[in-house]
Design a protein around this nucleic acid. Structure first.
Length: 275
DNA sequence: CAGGTCTCCTGCTAGC
DNA sequence: TGCTAGCAGGAGACCT
């Protein structure tokens, strides 16, 4: 599933090919992908516009269309492909951008991905961008910031680390990796975390995401970047998806549980529960 | 307000 | 071998 490193990888490869291209037409095959505004306003707002840049905020791709941003959230399985006009439309291709000489096609097997078109002057005032927390490398991400956000929260840290209104970009895979490196049990109530725990969460969030970006993201199950290119961080995973395996640090059997409905992997010895 | 549960989707897999 | 129930999961909607 695309998390921040995967979205960043997609952003970089799209940017290489899309900046300066004009959108001549948009075909929306599966309308539910368009979350805001209406499909017709979405199409009208993009046609004839030039793609000036591609930015990223959290897990959102932001296509700079001049007066507005086209936001694209890939959710579980969203992908982009460049294809020629005469290529048969795959049954999972839901939005097609006509760029003149070529087409950009949005493909999403589970149809969970969403797109928005938001005027630039409203981008920080409207959902979904207005709801987002800090980027992992933001200087404002400090122990005291997390302390403030986590105080009174009784939810397990695993759930809260996925909360995009606090820190953006962490999904289920990297959450497990970060907590493993920080030696924090995923079910720990976040109000019970020490300053040292918070410090490690910040440190390893940055380290893990940095390294994953350098390796082009993680390809497990279905993620690929543009045109089906795989990432390489899956070879670096310590804990996620490793049940039936052993902890790379202590050799204990890795355990899989459910936390807040999400599959969660951890080492019971390295990530002891607080008592 | 905080937190729990449901919903959206389809492909894959465990189990019979 | 072939079928099906169940699972996977980000984030918004809805309920308590």
């Amino acid at each position: 599933m695309p998390e921040l490193p995967e979205v960043e990888t997609v952003r970089r490869s799209l940017k290489l090919r899309l900046v300066g291209k004009k959108v001549y037409g948009v075909k929306v095959i599966y309308p539910n992908i368009i979350a805001y505004p209406s499909v017709s306003e979405f199409i009208k707002g993009i046609c004839g516009k030039e793609i000036r840049d591609i930015e990223r905020r959290g897990k959102f791709l932001m296509f700079d269309m001049g007066d507005s941003y086209l936001l694209s959230h890939l959710r579980m399985e969203g992908k982009y492909f460049f294809k020629n006009h005469d290529e048969v439309i795959n049954k999972h291709e839901h939005v097609i951008f006509d760029l003149g000489d070529i087409e950009l096609r949005y493909m999403d097997t589970r149809k969970f991905g969403r797109m928005y078109l938001i005027r630039k002057d409203m981008i920080n005032k409207m959902k979904p961008i207005s709801e987002l927390g800090l980027e992992p490398w933001d200087r404002k991400l400090t122990i005291s910031y997390l302390k403030d956000k986590y105080k009174n929260k009784k939810l397990p840290i695993k759930s809260v680390i996925l909360d995009q209104s606090i820190i953006v970009g962490i999904g289920n895979i990297y959450a497990d990796e970060i907590l493993f490196l920080a030696k924090i049990n995923p079910i720990t109530k976040c109000c019970d975390l020490s300053d040292d725990d918070l410090k490690k969460i910040i440190k390893y969030t940055r380290e893990v995401l940095d390294k994953a970006i350098k390796l082009g993201g993680t390809t497990i199950r279905s993620y690929t970047s543009v045109d089906g290119v795989h990432g390489r961080f899956q070879n670096e995973l310590s804990i996620h998806g490793k049940d039936k395996g052993n902890c790379p640090k202590c050799g204990s059997e890795i355990i899989k549980i459910k936390v807040g409905g999400r599959g969660t992997y951890y080492c019971p010895k390295c990530q002891k529960e607080k008592v």
